[in-house]
C-alpha cells in the first residue's frame, strides 16, 4: 500500500494520459494498468470546437485520483496559478509541480520548483514536485513539507531509463516521504529497476502511450512495478566477483 499525504493507493504505477493513439486504446490501457493515479495537464479550451471530447468524460472518475501537472509553467507563479485552476475543478487536491527550466532537456528549474512547492503547501495542496535526481534538492523539498518527491530517471519522453541509479538510491535512502521515479522510463526493465532500488512508485506516460501496443505495455508496466517492488521487499543477494555453486559439492558420484 502506497500512502501519500492521507491518501492510500493499491497501485504503485502512476500513469500519464498524453499522446495515446485513441481514447479507446487509452481507456483499455488505463484499465489494464490497474493504476489508481492518472496525471493530466491544464490547458485552454478550444472555444471554436463546441463538441470536443475529453478523456475524463470517458472514464469513471470515482476509480481514480487525478494528479494534474503544472507543465507549461516556467515560474513558480505560473505553476501556482495552474495548480489553483486544477483544484477549482473540484476533482483533485494533489498537484505535480512541473516547472521546466530548459527547453531542450525539459529538466526542471530547481529554484522555481522549490518556490512553487513552498507556496502550494501553504495553500493546502498535496504537493508532489517533479525534480532532477539532485540529492540535496530532494532533501530540501522534503524539508519544505512536500508529500512525495518525484525525481526524473532521465529526460522526459527520452526513454533512456535510469541513467543515475546511484543518485536515485541516495534520494530513496534519505527520504522519509514516498519517492516516485518520474520521467525517462522506457521499458518494463526500467520500471522494475526503479522499484528494485526502493522507489515507492513509478510515473510514466510515453513508454506506454507511444509503444506499439499500449494496452500490452500497460500490463507489462503493471507487472514490472509489482515484480520490482516484490524483489525490493524480498531483498536481493549481494553481487559477488566469483561463482558460488548452487548444487551441493558433497556426494558427487563421478
Amino acid at each position: 500500500m502506497l500512502t501519500i499525504g492521507e491518501k492510500q493507493f493499491n497501485s504503485r504505477l502512476f500513469l500519464g494520459t498524453g499522446k495515446y493513439p485513441s481514447f479507446a486504446i487509452q481507456k483499455e490501457a488505463v484499465e489494464v494498468s490497474e493504476t489508481n493515479i492518472l496525471t493530466f495537464s491544464v490547458r485552454r479550451m478550444d472555444i471554436f470546437e463546441s463538441s470536443q471530447p475529453n478523456f475524463l468524460e470517458k472514464i469513471d472518475l470515482k476509480n481514480y485520483d487525478l494528479l494534474p501537472n503544472t507543465a507549461g509553467a516556467k515560474t513558480a507563479e505560473e505553476a501556482v496559478r495552474t495548480a489553483k485552476l486544477a483544484k477549482a475543478s473540484g476533482l483533485c487536491d494533489m498537484v505535480k509541480v512541473e516547472i521546466i527550466g530548459c527547453d531542450k532537456t525539459l529538466l526542471p528549474d530547481p529554484v522555481e520548483t522549490l518556490r512553487a512547492t513552498e507556496e502550494l503547501l501553504k495553500e493546502g495542496f498535496i504537493v508532489l514536485p517533479y525534480t532532477s535526481d539532485d540529492v540535496v534538492l530532494a532533501r530540501k523539498l522534503e524539508e519544505l513539507g512536500a508529500h512525495a518527491i518525484m525525481p526524473g530517471a532521465s529526460p522526459i519522453g527520452s526513454g533512456q531509463g535510469i541513467i543515475n541509479p546511484l543518485n536515485l538510491s541516495f534520494i530513496i535512502e534519505q527520504a522519509n516521504v514516498p519517492v516516485i521515479v518520474d520521467a525517462g522510463i522506457g521499458s518494463p526493465k526500467d520500471a522494475a529497476f526503479a522499484m528494485e532500488l526502493g522507489a515507492d512508485g513509478v510515473l510514466l506516460n510515453t513508454a506506454v502511450s507511444a509503444s506499439l501496443d499500449p494496452v500490452k505495455m500497460a500490463e507489462a508496466m503493471k507487472l514490472a512495478v509489482e515484480a520490482g517492488r516484490l524483489g525490493y521487499e524480498a531483498g536481493r543477494i549481494p553481487k559477488k566477483r566469483y561463482a558460488t555453486a548452487s548444487s551441493p559439492t558433497e556426494g558427487i558420484s563421478i
Partner: peptide, 28 residues
C-alpha cells in the same frame, strides 16, 4: 479570479470582461 464550479451560475459577466476557460488534457 478562479471560480469554484458552484459559482458559475451566479457569476455575472459584463462588457469587456476577461474570461479563461480551461480543461484537463492528456499529460504526464
Amino acid at each position: 479570479i478562479i471560480l469554484e464550479k458552484n459559482n458559475h451560475p451566479k457569476q455575472i459577466v459584463a462588457d469587456g470582461d476577461k474570461i479563461e476557460l480551461v480543461e484537463f488534457v492528456g499529460g504526464g
